[in-house]
Amino acid sequence: MTGKKYNIALIGAGRMGARWAKVIHASTRATLSVVVDPNKEVGQGIARKYGAVYLPKFPKKNFSVDAFFVVTPHAYLYPHARRALLSHKPVFIEKPGARNAAELKKLIALAKKKRQLLMVGFNYRFFDALQKTKKILDAKTLGNVLFMRLRHGHPGRANYQKEWRMDKNIAGGGVLMDQGIHLIDLVLWYMPGEIKKLSAVSQNSFWKSKVEEQVSLILKNDKGQIASMSVGITEWKPIFSLEIIGERGYVRVEGLGRKYGGKELLTVGLKNKDGTVTEKTTTCNPEPENALKALFKKFIISVKTGKISGPTGEDALRVLEIVGKTYKVLENT
């Protein structure tokens, strides 16, 4: 891809912000021009590393950039993305897009009013094994999909209960608003349809926090397809497991990136005429930064063409609406 090199402003320089800064800097189509973060040591450190200007807060006046990457804790996604859209610039928001569906609806409406792109960072879609799975489903290799099973989680880290991810006022919830967001997005991506039934249970027995630490969720859509998922920060080892069962076979993904299992294995099993199953396992590329690079490429293409080519605000809204319904169910169980 050749052409203009886009100047990017990064809002938020935490764990995920640092990863995005590296990806943006490495791109031949973009320059990390500005880093905004209230933590001077962290923000200035990333800005110096990549030759960007550091600012402690979003400036009151517009500044000369081509697009914004908003990568902050959930409570600050909405206000920063709103200011970016008011600057008449394309905006990328890290998942989940906002703290709740109500906030995201406002951003979607504003993006339409300002005629600006709004993309959300569902990077799991771009992992090698999950991309290959999508192609298998789109080719109808498995026939009609019947159901999905997903398990995902990690053991947390020291004092995890004190992090913002465990603060409902900032995160909007617990693990469901973190890794659970990715699983729900994958369900909607692989099994498009309107969710008609939802059941869920949760617990917070390990970290003793005020948010959900473990959630089991079952979804059923208008096509009769079912997805069951378990997500938590109470695992002894990081885990990612996905199974999709179809009329003619199945797909299984074990591991995701180097963090969740070290390897990323894709197994496809297809039914033979005699009732036996032929199974083939492929080792996929486990490099997690490749997923970010692929998503960033989609964003740049979208900015260039003016037509979104990746996870949309509407995609994120559907996920957050399911999260909201799940929390209502959990309140009554």
Rank of each mutant, 00 (worst) to 15 (best):
M1S: 13
Y6L: 07
G12L: 15
M16A: 15
R29M: 04
T31C: 10
G45R: 04
K49F: 09
G51S: 10
K57G: 08
F58M: 08
F58V: 10
P59W: 05
A67R: 01
R83S: 15
P90I: 09
F92A: 05
F92I: 12
E94I: 11
G97F: 09
G97S: 08
A101C: 06
A102N: 08
E103Q: 08
K105I: 06
K106L: 13
K106C: 04
L110C: 07
K113G: 05
L117V: 00
M119D: 04
F122L: 07
N123E: 10
R125P: 07
R125I: 04
F126I: 01
D128K: 03
D128C: 02
L130H: 14
L130C: 03
K132H: 02
I136Q: 10
D138K: 13
V145H: 01
L150N: 05
L150W: 11
R151I: 01
G153C: 05
P155D: 09
R157S: 14
Y160L: 06
K162D: 13
R165D: 03
R165T: 11
N169I: 12
N169K: 08
N169Y: 13
I170H: 02
G172S: 14
G173S: 11
G174W: 04
G174H: 01
V175M: 05
L176N: 11
M177Y: 08
L183Q: 03
L183N: 08
L183H: 01
W189M: 13
P192Q: 15
I195F: 05
K197H: 12
K197E: 13
K197N: 10
S199R: 15
V201T: 15
Q203E: 12
Q203W: 06
F206H: 11
E213I: 02
K220C: 14
D222Q: 07
K223R: 14
M229T: 03
S230Y: 15
I233M: 06
P238L: 14
E243F: 14
I245E: 04
R248D: 05
R248G: 06
G249W: 04
V251N: 08
V251W: 07
V253A: 13
V253K: 03
G255R: 00
G257Q: 05
G257S: 03
E264R: 01
V268E: 09
T278E: 15
T282K: 11
T283R: 15
T283L: 15
T283P: 04
N285D: 14
N290P: 02
N290S: 11
F299R: 01
K307Y: 00
G310I: 06
G310W: 00
E314T: 02
L317C: 06
I322W: 05
Y327V: 09
